[in-house]
Design a protein around this nucleic acid. Structure first.
Lengths: 104, 104
DNA sequence: TTGACACATGTCGATATGGACATATATTAA
DNA sequence: TTAATATATGTCCATATCGACATGTGTCAA
């Protein structure tokens, strides 16, 4: 999942779906990307559950599965905490080293 | 940056730094990864600014630069909004299509 | 200076990845 | 059935990536 959103094109595809579910063609037009490429990215996103798909006529409507972003949200949360904690840790390791008698 | 955290090993390296700055050797031991690999991941992380480095004796202390996670935070924020908005968008596109007279 | 330590960098081979393009599949329309 | 549309899949090539390993670099101790 983390890997899936590591790609800029894939993020753009996801972004294109924020407004609601869309058929592939709309994404293709909106992002000016070749259709096979969009389909492939959608496949990757689908494999990790970030999007789902349903048929509608001869189209396939893709929609976000925002729940799947939860791991990312949780992971990021750890760091937000660190940000808030902002007791300047400068020199932490020095003290740790001194405690071990292993300084320098 | 997004790409940098797309790698599981790199995320583990970052996680190892949450507690505070650490020398490479500590990360190597803590994660049981070969040292060159850790150094390389640190290099990548450093290139995107997610970690910074300072010399301390013959060691190099790496520390998180949590500010650099802001883009990720912001990006994710869009989707949190969508989650909260949760007006079920099922069928949105149908109406859009019907509005265009292009249904089916 | 030499040697040991901590870390960085280079190389190589395997594998994965992305883009471009052609083509297959499925559904609808005629 | 045939044709057209919407999308998926396959192929090929270039490039990136990762792991493992060897080696280079800088710093400290003696």
């Amino acid at each position: 999942m983390f890997n899936a959103i590591g790609d800029a094109h894939r993020r753009r595809v996801l972004d294109a779906l924020i407004a609601g579910e869309k058929p592939v063609g709309d994404i293709v037009v909106g992002l000016a990307m070749p259709q096979p490429q969009v389909s492939r990215h959608l496949r990757v996103l689908s494999e990790v559950g970030l999007v789902s798909c349903r048929k509608f006529g001869r189209r396939r409507l893709y929609r976000l599965e925002t729940d799947r972003l939860r791991p990312l949200h949780d992971w990021l949360g750890q760091y937000e905490q660190v940000i808030n904690d902002r007791l300047d840790r400068l020199g932490d390791y020095l003290h740790e080293l001194q405690g071990q008698g292993d300084h320098q």
